[in-house]
């Protein structure tokens, strides 16, 4: 009976994941391997293809008031602003997913805020790996593909923004998780009882223990030939914290040095006093 409960929990998380996130790993992998039957993503590999691509790739955030003024800014700044808007959308998606985790909305409200503040970037970089291969990353809901080399060719410090995420994604993707595994994994990340400033740790740890059991069973059933997958995945949580720390440091540097750039208020909230 306990196994049945854990399976039901994993199924529930997978259903919420499908409802909350716009582009799944299954769809992203189909696009990256040309198996969708739809047209291939527009490839952005240099400044010219970036300019051409803007006619083909629609950006949701273009409908946001105030974006018009961004068009006169440097390419690196414009790209960064689009990344930011995608991140803000991702925070909204992750919050919706978190609220669907059984027990989450029953936690102290301050603790819910803290769990999201510390968890969202770790979840963003776990799910971003689904959109990446060693050569580039899908953008704009899979309509475009931006190459890793192009991102590396941007001026400093923008060229340093994505490379650590590619390095992580190559290792993370080698675990070959699917969306049903990722759904439970990100619930485990969100329910981390060791985040600074939590008021009431015990109920969070209890929920996470349950999620960890669900994850272990999920991986055993879905990957019977990979006996150490659970342990390997838990190790990735340490790598994710390191990536987030470096990401936040880089963003704080950008905030100081790039005076043309505005950091979105939601991301400022999340980054303030983080690490």
């Amino acid at each position: 009976p306990e196994c049945a409960d854990l399976r039901a929990l994993a199924k529930h998380l997978y259903d919420s994941y499908l409802k909350s996130f716009s582009l799944t790993k299954a769809k992203a992998r189909a696009i990256l391997t040309g198996k969708t039957g739809e047209k291939a993503p527009f490839v952005i590999y240099d400044m010219n293809s970036l300019m051409t691509g803007q006619q083909f790739v629609s950006y949701k955030q273009n409908s946001v008031p105030g974006q018009g003024q961004e068009q006169n800014k440097e390419v690196e700044i414009q790209l960064f602003q689009r990344c930011q808007f995608r991140s803000v959308e991702a925070v909204r998606e992750i919050t919706e997913f978190a609220k669907s985790i059984p027990g989450f909305i029953g936690l102290d409200l301050n603790d819910q805020v803290t769990l999201l503040k510390y968890g969202v970037h770790e979840v963003i970089f776990s799910t971003l790996a689904s959109l990446m291969n060693k050569d580039g990353v899908l953008i704009s809901d899979g309509q475009g593909f931006m190459t890793r080399e192009f991102l590396k060719s941007l001026r400093k410090p923008f060229c340093e923004l994505m490379e650590p995420k590619f390095e992580f994604s190559v290792k993370f993707n080698s675990l070959e998780l699917d969306d049903s595994d990722l759904a439970v994994f990100i619930a485990v990340i969100i329910l981390s009882g060791d985040r600074p400033g939590l008021v009431n740790v015990k109920p969070i740890e209890d929920l996470q223990d349950n999620m960890l059991q669900a994850l272990e069973l999920q991986l055993k059933m879905n990957h019977p030939d990979a006996p150490h997958l659970f342990a390997k995945l838990l190790q990735k949580m340490t790598d994710l914290r390191q990536i987030v720390t470096e990401h936040v440091q880089l963003l704080q540097l950008l905030k100081k040095t790039e005076l043309e750039m505005n950091i979105h208020p939601l991301l400022q909230e999340i980054m303030k006093d983080l690490y």
Binding site: T95, E96, L109, T114, K117, E269
Partner: peptide, 21 residues
């Protein structure tokens, strides 16, 4: 915490309403 994280707080309290940017 609520004062310092108004947007996060709003996202948690409101059901999938668009974020006021």
């Amino acid at each position: 915490l609520k004062e310092k994280h108004k947007i996060l707080h709003r996202l948690l309290q409101n059901s999938s309403s668009p974020v006021d940017l």
